[in-house]
Amino acid sequence: MAPAEPDAATLSKRPGVDTKGEVKTQLARMEALVRDLLDYAKPWRIEKAEIDLAAAIA
């Protein structure tokens, strides 16, 4: 199991941590995940094509 991400209060107390930059980074990660899920959920496009059944089975 992955370690828990620090909360906003913890991030703001750590020296050298750019909270605004961290939020932007995490938002970009979430945006990519949502985009991937939406692409995965798109209906398939099925196209008819003639094939050589004997060659496909062999």
Results as ranks from 00 to 15, higher is better:
Asp36Gln: 14
Ile46Tyr: 03
Val23Phe: 00
Ala4Tyr: 01
Arg35Ala: 11
Glu31Gly: 08
Ala49Met: 12
Glu31Ser: 09
Val17His: 03
Met1Tyr: 06
Lys24Ser: 09
Thr19Cys: 06
Ala9Gln: 12
Val17Gly: 06
Ile46Leu: 14
Gly21Trp: 00
Thr25Phe: 13
Leu53Glu: 12
Ala58Gln: 10
Leu38Cys: 08
Ala55Met: 05
Val34Asp: 06
Leu33Ala: 09
Asp7Thr: 00
Gly21Cys: 02
Gln26Asn: 07
Ser12Met: 13
Ala4Cys: 11
Thr19His: 02
Gly16Glu: 02
Arg14Cys: 10
Glu5Gln: 13
Met30Asp: 13
Ala58Arg: 11
Pro43Glu: 06
Asp18Met: 00
Lys20Phe: 07
Asp36Cys: 06
Lys48Gly: 12
Glu5Ser: 12
Asp52Leu: 06
Gly16Pro: 02
Leu53Thr: 05
Glu5Phe: 10
Leu27Val: 01
Ile57Thr: 05
Thr10Pro: 03
Pro6Phe: 04
Ala9Glu: 14
Ala49Val: 15
Glu47Phe: 06
Ala4Val: 14
Leu37Phe: 03
Asp36His: 03
Ala56Leu: 10
Arg14Phe: 01
Ala9Val: 02
Asp18Lys: 01
Asp7Cys: 05
Ala9Met: 08
Arg29Ser: 05
Asp18Gln: 05
Glu31Lys: 10
Gly16Leu: 03
Glu47Pro: 04
Arg14Met: 12
Leu11Cys: 04
Lys48Phe: 12
Pro43Asn: 02
Gly21Pro: 10
Leu37Lys: 08
Ala2Gln: 15
Lys24His: 07
Thr19Lys: 01
Leu37Glu: 14
Lys13Arg: 15
Arg45Ser: 09
Ser12Tyr: 00
Leu33Pro: 00
Ala54Met: 09
Lys48Val: 04
Ile51Val: 13
Arg35Asp: 04
Ala4Thr: 10
Glu47Tyr: 03
Ala32Cys: 04
Lys42Cys: 09
Trp44Phe: 10
Lys24Trp: 00
Pro15Asp: 09
Ala54Glu: 14
Leu53Gly: 07
Lys13Met: 13
Ala41Gly: 10
Leu33His: 02
Ser12Asp: 14
Ile57Arg: 04
Gly21Phe: 00
Thr25Pro: 01
Gln26Lys: 08
Pro3His: 04
Ala55Asp: 10
Met1Ile: 12
Ala58Phe: 08
Ala2Met: 13
Ala41Gln: 08
Asp39Gly: 09
Tyr40Ala: 15
Arg35Thr: 02
Lys42Asn: 07
Val17Ile: 07
Leu37Ala: 09
Glu50Ala: 10
Ala28Ile: 01
Ala49Cys: 08
Asp52Trp: 03
Ala9Lys: 11
Pro6Met: 05
Lys20Ile: 07
Glu22Tyr: 05
Pro3Ser: 07
Gly16Gln: 04
Met1Val: 13
Ala49Leu: 11
Ile51Arg: 08
Val17Tyr: 03
Leu11Trp: 00
Arg35Phe: 02
Lys20Met: 12
Val34Glu: 12
